[in-house]
Design a protein around this nucleic acid. Structure first.
Length: 576
DNA sequence: CTTAGGG
DNA sequence: CCCTAAG
């Protein structure tokens, strides 16, 4: 897997997990400073008295400027890469030596560091810190790759990424080498002839600040490293952006390990970039610096495992999103209960059901709690009427309750579309809901549509067209009991609205950000618009609105749906 | 039974 | 998400 595995955990957690997950232990050194200033920053941090011990034992700044993980060195060494140079790599044996000596100091250090930092504080700080760094615009994350898929086949993109890891490494090495071809290595030789004082002066001129370290070898290596970084930044090199186009996905060029490496180094650049960051900002982030620096250094000693924070892990992020959805679900349902407009029929109706239930009719009432009973009829009559008027959904749910497992056993016949996460979670929710619905569940399924489901819907519409909802349901949503054809229709209507709104917001002021990021990828919405042009949403609606009417009303204020219909008509008029 | 459309 | 009208 990745050469870099960072556990952003507190010391205690790390100590525990290091025993539980030994396979995640990285090779001894796993810091890679993207810039000279990063290294200096760490050095300055540990130059402070309270960290003096740890500096001497953990990091040997006299002998190295940066460190690379063993696997990384192996991978790149054959290609004459910029970043691999043995005299700049962290001496592994030194680290391991320090490892045995450092136990007591480390404990002391951990105590000192965690003083005033409870675990929550640490994690929050890390998160805040990470949020503070704006990296996403520059580097596409793995999550972006998997989220911004434009068609369903790309769901397995992650696997492709993993499979092509080695190949892409070569690509990167080549690029890196290219970036350094113009680098004047001969100029570096003169460093050897310089005195230490001269080197210090050159160092100061080169990096803009004085170093407290006067070791000649250290200075040389730092300057070489800085020059090379300068070279790379002059070239404005960045990792190739991943194309979201499905036709190019076979050659995904972002290597996760390298990507993460870049992120880590960029993060450090952000921390230790004293020249570009205002002083106040630096001071403000001091606690972050200490904590993150500690983590990196500890990981260099192979003691503390560092994991990538959730923000960088697409799977974890997806899980978080699911969790968030669940939370939102709860909130929204609570909210719905309090909303007078919506709560109207559902809650009142439930109270009637409870009355009936108290008269010995038992659990059935929970199951029909969603059916509206005409008031005034005797209870028995109401029940009979209810049975006759049982909606499709309620019948389906009843059947579902009677044989949950058999329904669950059904699988998606298409086989290409797995919606396990949403299905299982929603079904779990539903199982719970059916037991407790009497008290706090008015609506049967207030389950948010996942991106996968939206993709399936788009796929279905593109295959069958708009209007054949039951066909789409049979074909793509057979395993999703809680998505009725009407739901698909409703969702399509909402998607249409969303895509239209997005179009409008792009024209004018981008007010969408107020409501947070839409989870629906742009590509999907674009596809929805395409399909809306091909398959007009409503034939009835179209015939109802005459072209003259649309022209007459075009100057007036219109609702989004009407506007979208009119837009479709205009497009259709143009194309036909 | 399915769909469109309103709420 | 639910309901109703219409086919």
């Amino acid at each position: 897997m990745d050469s870099f595995t960072y556990n952003w955990k507190t010391p205690n957690e790390c100590a525990k997990s290091s025993q539980q997950e030994p396979e995640q232990v990285v090779s001894a050194a796993s810091i890679y400073f993207a810039s000279e200033e990063e290294a200096i920053g760490v050095e300055q941090l540990f130059a402070e008295p309270e960290y003096g011990d740890i500096v001497d034992t953990l990091l040997d700044f006299n002998t190295c400027a940066c460190s690379l993980p063993e696997s990384y060195t192996k991978e790149f060494s054959a290609s004459d890469s910029v970043v691999t140079n043995s005299d700049r790599a962290f001496p592994l044996d030194a680290v391991q030596r320090g490892l045995s000596e450092v136990d007591k100091t480390r404990e002391k250090f951990l105590d000192g560091l965690s003083n005033g930092y409870n675990e929550n504080h640490c994690s929050i700080s890390c998160e805040d810190y990470l949020l503070d760094i704006e990296l996403e615009e520059e580097i596409p994350t793995l999550d972006d790759v998997t989220r911004d898929v434009s068609c369903i086949e790309n769901v397995n993109l992650e696997n492709k990424l993993a499979d092509s890891e080695q190949r892409n490494c070569d690509v990167h090495v080549l690029k890196l080498s290219d970036a350094s071809t113009s680098f004047d290595h001969d100029a570096l030789d003169k460093f050897e002839d310089m005195s230490t004082d001269k080197l210090l002066e050159v160092f100061r001129n080169m990096f803009g600040h004085q170093t407290s370290v006067a070791d000649k070898q250290w200075l040389e290596s730092h300057m070489i490293f800085g020059l090379e970084n300068q070279e790379m930044s002059d070239k404005n090199y960045c990792f190739p952006k991943t194309s979201l186009d499905s036709s190019e996905n076979q050659g995904v060029k972002v290597l996760p390990a390298c990507q993460n490496l870049l992120k880590v180094s960029t993060a450090f650049a952000s921390i230790f970039n004293f020249r570009t960051k205002p002083r106040a900002q630096h001071v403000k982030r001091r606690e972050h610096i200490q904590w993150n620096s500690f983590k990196c250094l500890s990981s260099a000693a192979g003691e503390i495992q560092l994991d990538f924070p959730d923000k960088w892990d697409s799977k974890e992020l997806a899980k978080e999103n699911l969790k968030c959805d669940g939370t939102k679900l709860g909130i929204s349902e609570q909210h719905l209960k309090c909303k007078p407009s919506r709560g109207g029929f559902g809650r009142r109706y439930y109270h009637r059901g409870a009355k009936v239930s108290s008269q010995g009719l038992g659990k059935r009432n929970f199951q029909v709690g969603c059916i509206q009973i005409p008031p005034g009829l005797p209870i028995e009559e109401r029940l009979i009427k209810r049975e006759g008027h049982l909606s499709k959904d309620c019948r389906a749910n009843r059947a579902y309750n009677s044989n949950i497992h058999s329904v669950e056993a059904q699988d998606d016949p298409s086989g290409t579309l797995s919606d396990q996460s949403t299905d299982s979670s929603s079904e779990d929710d539903w199982t719970i809901g059916s037991e407790t619905r009497g008290t706090n569940q008015d609506r049967k399924h207030n389950k948010y549509w996942s991106t996968t489901e939206v993709l399936k819907l788009v796929e279905g519409v593109s295959k069958y067209g708009v209007g054949r909802w039951s066909d789409i349901k049979k074909m793509f949503f057979q395993s999703s009991v809680h998505r009725s054809p009407a739901d698909l229709k409703d969702k399509w209507r909402n998607l249409l609205r969303a895509s239209c709104q997005r179009l409008q917001s792009r024209r004018g002021v981008d007010a969408k950000k107020k409501h947070g990021k839409s989870r629906i990828p742009h590509e999907v919405l674009n596809r929805v618009r395409e399909l809306a042009v091909i398959y007009p949403y409503s034939r009835r609606h179209r015939t109802r609105i005459s072209p003259t009417a649309s022209l007459a009303s075009s100057s007036n204020v219109e609702s989004d749906s009407q506007l979208s219909i009119n837009e479709e008509q205009n497009t259709l008029n143009l194309t036909y």
